[in-house]
């Protein structure tokens, strides 16, 4: 059942017979193919070098209240997580299988219960976890965002349900801007995208009450990104 498809498409075709005026004078005659690549140059500059972009990413993390940390290796990342766990009295963290996740998980203290979700999980159990540990597709310098997908980051829920989201990323996953992030996704997945793609820019927040910033509205109160070489 597709409803009133033909009627709507018919009305649209009829309506579009008259051409609409254009108010966007700077961009030629608007045929999309030419407009698309052009806009990158108007967006905030990201710097040419990897170091400059890393610096920008780090600055934006601060603005966004994301905890961003360089770790020498998987072991160091595990140590950082262990410290967070100790500080927050964590009992259990959830994670998905992945090269980086597994490497780090191998160094986590045995006192920390690890809940693996790749072959299905109990929602209440996931909800009661103290943190979710995921990998990502990329980090975006221009916006301070983490790009996650349902394939790279353990589905849709792991990165949003537990109160603390920890992201493991490799240094070469840093891309310049959203355009570059999309280009990478297109290259990696072609026409078979994961069912969920997302850009996460800081921990969950709301300003709905008197426009005062409160973190952890519905999603994680804290977001930690651990960068390993």
């Amino acid at each position: 059942m597709s409803g009133d498809r033909e009627a709507i498409l018919g009305r649209i075709a009829e309506a579009l017979r008259e051409e609409a005026p254009r108010h966007h004078e700077h961009v030629g005659n608007g045929r999309h193919a030419s407009a698309a690549p052009a806009f990158q140059q108007w967006l905030p500059p990201v710097g040419a070098s990897h170091a400059a972009r890393l610096e920008l990413f780090s600055q934006l993390c601060e603005v966004l209240r994301t905890e961003f940390k360089h770790c020498a290796n998987a072991n160091a990342a595990a140590k950082h997580i262990a410290a967070l766990a100790k500080e927050g009295n964590w009992r259990r963290i959830a994670l998905h299988a992945g090269e980086l996740n597994d490497a780090v998980a191998a160094h986590l203290p045995p006192t920390l219960d690890l809940m693996r979700i790749e072959s299905g999980y109990d929602r209440d159990a996931l909800e009661s976890c103290d943190a979710g540990l995921t990998e990502c597709e990329s980090l975006v310098a221009q916006t301070g965002s983490v790009c996650v997908t349902s394939r790279s980051s353990g589905g849709r829920t792991l990165s949003v349900l537990p109160p603390h989201h920890i992201v493991l990323a490799r240094e070469n996953q840093l891309v310049a801007d959203l355009t570059a992030a999309y280009a990478e996704l297109a290259q990696k997945y072609g026409s078979s995208y994961p069912s969920f793609l997302g850009f996460i820019s800081g921990p969950s927040r709301t300003g709905d009450i008197e426009r005062i910033l409160v973190l952890g509205a519905h999603g994680p109160r804290r977001l930690t990104i651990l960068l390993v070489p």
């Binding site: 979700i117 349902s150 994961p194 069912s195 969920f196 997302g198 996460i200 820019s201």
Partner: peptide
Amino acid sequence: TGQHLTCYNSMYGGPRQEGEVDGPEEF
């Protein structure tokens, strides 16, 4: 809101796909 980017920007293409751990059965 004046933010340079909103906290969550999410794109959804279909219900849970094969090999994915969660997501709706129907979309």
